[in-house]
Write a protein that binds this DNA or RNA. Structure first.
Length: 291
DNA sequence: GGGCAGGTCTAAG
DNA sequence: CTTAGACCTGCC
């Protein structure tokens, strides 16, 4: 991809056109980034606090340094991938062309698999504000305080070992509702080595999906989110209500089962299905398509 | 108060 | 294998 990186104090400045914090953090893939008054975003990932701001075609990463940027954020923001190329390919489809144009700064983050597993278990039949609230409570109560930024303390996501020792009653206090037993089981299955979530990325997409669905509370949609947002399985095609609506509205023209939409999407977009899903999701939700 | 929100589980055809 | 109903919780 076409970009340059400059270090300046605690800031790293990257020039690129395929990066918009609003698109990236509000396209449904992550829950720990919050918009500030100056339209920058502050978030935590891999135990570090970062501020991200866009000014013209420059992206300014604050509260970091070049080593940390290379170790963590380059991969996290998928900066080694050429999104112009992906967008060009997808834009051959007239509907995707609109969606890509609308969310032109979307990038698919490379998040931590365990955090992504628990976060998307919480997301089931839930709303974004409450998902975020639950995750923050879990981090505050069971994660480590990793420092202060602008006078506010930030906390890491707890490890499988720590979370596996949290009781279901304590989880309920984080307002996760009926998902308490799912989180409890999932954390224990990871902590006791029953499922090696950190090596699932080496399996095929179907192999990884079958394994992920052994976790209680993980069905087809959640498993595909985990694969797409933390395992670089870009052939995954998670279908939530918005993707169902937009697919029926533009392509299928009738009420269609989730299973059929998933097969349709994967066959139509192939190894770019996950990217297509993100552009379509953002487009549909922001514009309220099909509601 | 009943409905709804980034689905999944369960029980039944 | 496909399809209804229930489900925590908190804000309309």
């Amino acid at each position: 991809m076409n970009y340059s990186i400059v270090e300046n104090g605690d800031k790293i400045i990257v020039k690129t056109n395929d990066f918009d914090p609003i698109h990236i953090f509000e396209c449904g893939q992550c829950f720990r980034w919050n918009r500030e008054e100056d339209f920058s975003f502050i978030g935590v990932a891999f135990g570090k606090i970062l501020n991200v701001k866009k000014e013209d075609n420059c992206i300014i990463f604050s509260n970091t340094n070049l080593d940390e940027f290379n170790d963590i954020w380059f991969k996290y923001f998928d900066l080694g991938r050429d999104y112009s190329k992906i967008k060009k390919k997808l834009s051959k489809d007239p509907i995707l062309k609109e969606a890509v144009n609308f969310g032109s700064g979307i990038r698919i983050l490379n998040q931590d698999p365990f955090e992504t597993l628990i976060s998307f278990i919480i997301s089931a039949n839930n709303g974004i504000p409450r998902i975020k609230k639950s995750i923050e409570l879990i981090c505050k109560r069971y994660g480590d305080c990793i420092g202060e930024y602008n006078g506010k303390k930030y906390y890491s996501f707890p490890t499988p070992e720590v979370l596996s020792k949290v009781s279901m009653d304590e989880l309920r206090e984080c307002s996760v509702g009926f998902r308490d037993r799912y989180i409890y089981s999932a954390a224990n299955m990871v902590a006791n080595g029953e499922i090696d979530i950190y090596n699932l990325k080496y399996l095929s997409i179907n192999g990884a999906r079958d394994t992920l669905m052994k976790f209680p509370g993980v069905g087809p949609k959640v498993s595909d989110c985990i694969m797409l947002f933390s395992m670089e399985k870009h052939g995954a095609f998670p279908i939530d209500v918005w993707v169902k609506r937009v697919m029926e509205y533009f392509y299928l023209k009738e009420d269609t089962s989730l299973k059929k939409i998933q097969v349709y999407g994967q066959e139509k977009f192939k190894n770019l299905a996950g990217f297509a899903q993100q552009y379509l999701f953002y487009y549909a939700r922001e514009l309220g398509i099909g509601k």
